[in-house]
Design a protein around this nucleic acid. Sequence first.
DNA 1: AGGTGGACCCGAACGC
DNA 2: TGCGTTCGGGTCCACC
Length: 276
Amino acid sequence: MPELPEVETVRRVLEPALVGARILHAEIVDPRLTRPFDPGIVAAELVGERVTAVGRRGKYLLVVLGPGRVLLVHLRMTGSFRVAPRASLPADAHRRALLRLDNGLDVAYRDLRRFGTWELLEPVDVEPHLADRLGPEPFARVVTGRWLSDRVARRRAPLKAVLLDQRVVAGLGNIYVDEALWRARLHPARPAASLDAADGARLVRAMRAALRVGIDRQGATLRDYAAPDGREGTMQDEFHAYGRSGEPCSRCRAPLERTVVAGRGTTFCPRCQPAP
DNA sequence: AGGTGGACCCGAACGC
DNA sequence: TGCGTTCGGGTCCACC
C-alpha cells in the first residue's frame, strides 16, 4: 500500500523520465480513474502538455504541466506506474491509462483494485484542494512535539485514528503508523488528547525515523508494489510491528499482539506500548 | 462537531 | 478439489 515512502520512491523514479517531456498521446482506459469527468476529455487535455515537475504532497503525486495545471494522482491501495521505452511494455489486464512521451518513453498506470484517482486541476485550484485534505508534511519544521500534542489536544479518538487522519499530518498509513507508534512506545488506542509534549516529541521523532527508513529502502513491497522502474522495495524486512503479530518484539522479546483500532488491523507490543 | 462505520474494489486467504 | 465467504486498505460520505 503506497504511503509516503512508497509515493516518494515513485516520484523519484518518475521525475527524470517525465520532466521536460511532452505528452504525445494519452489513453485513459478506466473511466473510474477520472470520475466524474469524462476520461476522453481529460486525456485530450493532457495531450500536447509538457511536464515541468513531478512533486509529492502526502500520498499525492503532482505531475505539474506547462501552464501550471497539475495532474493530481492518488495511488490509493494498488495504483502503480511503469516507465519503459515505447511499445516495450507487455499487455496488462489491469492497465488503466497510458501516456506516450516525446522522449521515447511510455508511462503506464495500472491499478488492480481501481481505487486510484487522476484529477486534472487548474493552477488556482491546486493549493486549496490540497489544503482542504492535508496537514503539514511530517518533515516540515512546524511539526514539533509541542505542535502535535497541541494539535490533538481536543481529540478523544485513538492516537492511531488521529495519525491516519491526513489533515493532522500528511502521508502516514496503516504500516507507518504502527511502526511509528512502536518506535515511540505509545499504545495505538490511547486517546490522542492524552499526549503531552514529551510524548509528542517522541512520536514526531519516531514517525520521521520510520518514514526515513522506508524512503531509504525504497518502500515496502508486500504484494505487488514496485517503483516505475520495476524495482521492489525492501522496507518489509525492516518492520518492527506491522504484520508481525505473534512474533517477538525486537526490543523486549514479548510476543506482539494484534487488535483492531479505528477499524484497522493493528500490531503492537503489549509490554513496550502499555495500554492506557 | 467530532467520531464511527459503510461503500468503493477485487485478489488472496480462509473455511467447509 | 471446489466452492463460497471474509478480509484489507485510503478516502469520502452518511449518520450518530
